[in-house]
């Protein structure tokens, strides 16, 4: 159990470091898939099977592919330009280390997190589905609405403005002709 944890944590964190340090952006996207899959394995270790599969479906299946699409669409699949801003790099890593130190010192000094697992939870997917349809039905509807709005918004934002403008220009004369006939 502990060996599995060490291996999964190493793979996940190694993948995360690779995502943030590799120069070739497609390699970064592949390392991102490794990180997301490692997190899924960690959810399995925590006996949250449903969340692990959701993680695989949503992150590995959708978000990682979306990022690869964005990389290819923006033609930034080549190597990132040389990072000449050394001071900003040092500052960024410094801020991250400062945040890490703060979290870790809070973690290790507090006795609040000194817990052990009591029993294995017996939460089944059937129970989760029933809860989603009864107790959590309103949040579920809200999240559905949010996802619909986000999808429509993404399409509208990413739509090529010039093409839309051209289309409306070519459509205008027809309307004028129709008006004359009318």
């Amino acid at each position: 159990m502990e060996l599995a944890f060490v291996i999964i944590a190493t793979v996940t964190l190694g993948g995360a470091v690779a995502v943030m340090s590799l120069r070739h952006l497609v390699h970064c996207a592949l390392a991102l898939v490794v990180t997301f899959a490692g997190l899924g394995a960690m959810y399995l270790l925590l006996s949250a099977e449903f969340v692990a599969f959701v993680q695989l479906l949503v992150y590995v299946g959708a978000v990682a592919i979306l990022i690869v699409f964005a990389l290819l669409l923006t033609r930034s699949a080549t190597v990132e330009p040389h990072q000449g801003l050394l001071h900003s790099k040092v500052a960024g890593v410094g801020i991250a280390l400062l945040a890490f130190g703060t979290i870790i010192s809070a973690l290790l000094t507090s006795s609040r997190f000194d817990r052990t697992q009591i029993t294995a939870p017996s939460l089944t997917v059937r129970q989760i589905g029933e809860e989603l349809m009864t107790r959590y039905v309103l949040p579920l509807e809200v999240i559905g609405l949010l996802l619909t709005a986000a999808t429509i918004g993404a399409v509208v934002i990413a739509m090529d403005e010039r093409k839309v403008a051209d289309r409306s220009k070519s459509a205008e004369p027809e309307h004028a002709a129709e008006d004359k006939h009318g």
């Binding site: 944590a9 996940t12 964190l13 995360a16 470091v17 995502v19 943030m20 952006l25 970064c28 990180t35 960690m42 990022i67 964005a70 990389l71 923006t74 930034s76 990132e80 330009p81 990072q83 801003l85 900003s88 790099k89 500052a91 960024g92 890593v93 801020i95 991250a96 280390l97 945040a99 890490f100 979290i103 870790i104 973690l107």
Partner: peptide, 21 residues
């Protein structure tokens, strides 16, 4: 592990030059 992952993400968001990264 979660704190380390968070800080790696934070460092990356601050130092990477590509908006996607």
């Amino acid at each position: 592990v979660a704190a380390m992952l968070f800080c790696i993400g934070l460092a990356g968001a601050l130092i990477r030059r590509s908006a996607i990264m």
